[in-house]
């Protein structure tokens, strides 16, 4: 199913390992307004296991998380 929600800011973090994927996510959030939505592409494995967890810990909300055909993950997060 295609996600109906549109991201305000999109970052393709394919090939970006831990922890730089989280650093880049934090930088993206710093430029956004509260309530805006960040769309991320994260690699399978440690990135999809770690980034959403860290983002939740900082109070942001994961709206959806789905695996794409190439194995990477599309994640939508609402900024706290």
């Amino acid at each position: 199913m295609k996600t109906a929600i549109r991201a305000d800011v999109f970052q393709d973090l394919k090939g970006v390992g831990c922890p730089m994927n989280l650093v880049k996510t934090k930088v993206a959030f710093a430029k956004m307004e509260s309530g805006q939505i960040l769309g991320l592409i994260l690699d399978n494995g440690p990135p999809i296991n770690n980034v959403p967890r860290s983002v939740i810990r900082e109070g942001h909300e994961i709206l959806s998380q789905e695996q794409l055909a190439d194995g990477t993950w599309s994640v939508l997060i609402r900024k706290a």
Partner: peptide
């Protein structure tokens, strides 16, 4: 700079700001 300061940016109490 993102790489250089990554260990600060990752800290919730420091962060990007």
């Amino acid at each position: 700079q993102l790489e250089r300061y990554s260990r600060h940016i990752l800290l919730d109490d420091v962060g990007v700001a």
